[in-house]
């Protein structure tokens, strides 16, 4: 275990080297800032992608249409039963009257339809239940359950008129939505991983080059009798410094960038404002970006020095 004098010397050597190798330090910080910026923006991209996909998935639902003669309490009872199912997120009840009002307003410019409605006199529409599942893949189970209810019918004639899940078109749309959101999520993840991987590799290489310029010094240090740890530690201090400074620059840069992007892209990303998201999750970003920077700097320096210590 190094004593306090050694630690003090290591820190001083690290800071001094950092300062005296000004240009190398600057270059390393710039490259590392790019890396951390990519890490930061991919974090945002990940969050945005998730929220966009979530809004898309949220558009999926299954509607149960009841017969006009279905008594309201039975419908409400079914709503309760559905609500109790683990797969179900939310069940919205629309009464026959509300359905009619909605139908009227939807067709308010269509005189012919309204006239036909008038002729009928009676409300031709039944009540509806709008079911949203917790996950898009669970609609099948819910629909099966409803179908059972329909067949059992509680003795008499079934109160359920139609379940739109069994419409060919509706079902295709649901399946397609699931496919698209799933593969978008997967592709997004792969792209993010590749991007982060490449930039980390670039950072790594930059630090290796920075230390390559010191390879003769490392040899001299070895020949003068310095221990491996004593040679390596100041380089790691430098690497950590690069990481810290680049991290702070990145966090500062993200502020105007998200501010500018925030209003421009809010509607596009399913209602999430990147700027307010950044501010509200600042400690998360702080931890990830500074943490990545420091870890990257320390590990890259550690590995880069290793090859010149073999003397």
């Amino acid at each position: 275990m190094p004593d306090s004098v050694t630690i003090k010397r290591i820190l001083r050597a690290g800071f001094l080297d950092f300062w005296r190798n000004g240009f190398v330090s600057l270059a390393s910080i710039l490259v590392m800032t790019v890396t951390l910026f990519v890490v930061g923006t991919t974090l945002f991209a990940g969050v945005m992608l998730q929220s966009t996909l979530a809004t898309l998935r949220d558009k999926a639902d299954v509607t149960v249409y009841f017969t006009t003669s279905a008594p309201e309490e039975k419908v409400l009872q079914l709503q309760k039963t559905l609500q109790a199912l683990p797969q179900v997120q939310e069940v919205t009840y629309t009464s026959a009257e509300d359905a009619l009002t909605a139908f009227r307003s939807r067709h308010q410019n269509d005189q012919l339809t309204l006239q036909a409605l008038q002729e009928l006199g009676d409300n031709p529409l039944g009540a509806e239940l709008d079911i949203k599942a917790k996950d898009i893949s669970q609609y099948d189970a819910i629909a099966q359950f409803l179908q059972q209810q329909q067949q059992n019918g509680g003795g008499g004639a079934s109160i359920i008129d139609k379940i739109n899940y069994f419409d060919q078109q509706h079902r295709q749309a649901l399946d397609r939505l699931q496919e698209i959101t799933d593969s978008a999520g997967r592709i997004g993840l792969i792209v993010i991983l590749i991007l982060v991987g490449v930039t980390i590799a670039i950072s790594f290489n930059t630090l290796r080059l920075a230390i390559y310029t010191s390879r003769e010094e490392i040899q001299v240090m070895r020949l003068v009798g310095a221990g491996q740890f004593y040679i390596r530690a100041p380089f790691m201090v430098e690497g950590v410094l690069y990481g810290l400074i680049s991290g702070v620059i990145t966090l500062l840069l993200l502020y105007p960038v998200t501010y500018w992007m925030g209003t421009a892209t809010q509607s596009f990303f399913g209602g999430i404002n990147v700027f307010s998201y950044y501010l509200s999750h600042f400690f998360f970003f702080f931890a990830i970006i500074i943490g990545t920077g420091v870890l990257l700097g320390a590990v890259a320096s550690y590995l880069a020095v290793r090859r010149y210590l073999k003397i």
Partner: peptide, 24 residues
């Protein structure tokens, strides 16, 4: 061993043709 060699080197001072000072 490699991680002990520096203790031996401290007992030997070295001077080279190309000086090998630390430039920084």
């Amino acid at each position: 061993p490699m991680n002990r060699i520096n203790h031996l080197r401290r007992k030997i001072g070295t001077v080279f043709q190309d000086f090998r000072l630390l430039p920084q």
